[in-house]
Amino acid sequence: MKSLFSMVSWMGLFRVWQRNFIVYRQNWKISFLAPILEPLFYLLAFGYGLSTLVGNIRENGMEISYTAFIAPALIAINIMNNAFFENTYSSFVRMYYQKTFDAMMATPLTVNEIIAGEIVWGATKSVIATMIMMAVISAFGLIQYPSGLLLIPLAFMGGLAFGAVGMYFTGIVPHIDLFNLPFFLFITPMFLFSGTFFPIENLPDWAQVIAITFPLTHLVNLARSICYGRFDGVMLWQLLYIVIFWMVFFPLALYKMRKRLIK
């Protein structure tokens, strides 16, 4: 692990990040639209449409409204989606179609710096989306402050973990269409069954066991605790699980991308 990090210079990593940031800055108006509108749509459809049917939810011994239940989950889902999408489709386009990485490899940048920079960029997109969503959701009074500000570092850590998983897939898929597979088998089940729209206690026992292994389950729980301003020791374990996910997939992603790019 130590030798892995010594192969990445912070400056090189930052330069790759900076390239993506310069491109992002040009289209920020469009990029801002999704994280503003998405929580609005979900809160309206699920929160107000469904809440009359669902009523309140008992969560960790607390009685809360359905909108308050799903709002933190929406943030967690977006942390996952932004980083995963960025480091799958977007990174793949840069690597395969635009040959951006090939051009970078003719400069002092190393493959490790390029890929680490891409993953940190994916996490940055999670952070940006989270901050915008926080503004929208706060308008509904669904986030407690100042503890709510912890969502920002959480978004970065979650983004790193899901981005590393995405980049690992980018290192192994032969063709861009095959990203449907991890989206369908990995992202969609997590989106639905990580205690996002209903508590995982509603699932049958065997399904609960699977849901516990999903990193999103822990990210959702952390986001809830932060939004409600309710802290306990379990949060450390939940955070540790996400960090471990990152620690496994980050070196794997670097390894697979090195194999893919160095000919």
Partner: peptide, 12 residues
């Protein structure tokens, strides 16, 4: 280095 394929950055 001028590589064979034109890999200018199309986003910039």
């Amino acid at each position: 280095v001028c590589q064979q394929e034109n890999n200018l950055d199309p986003d910039l």
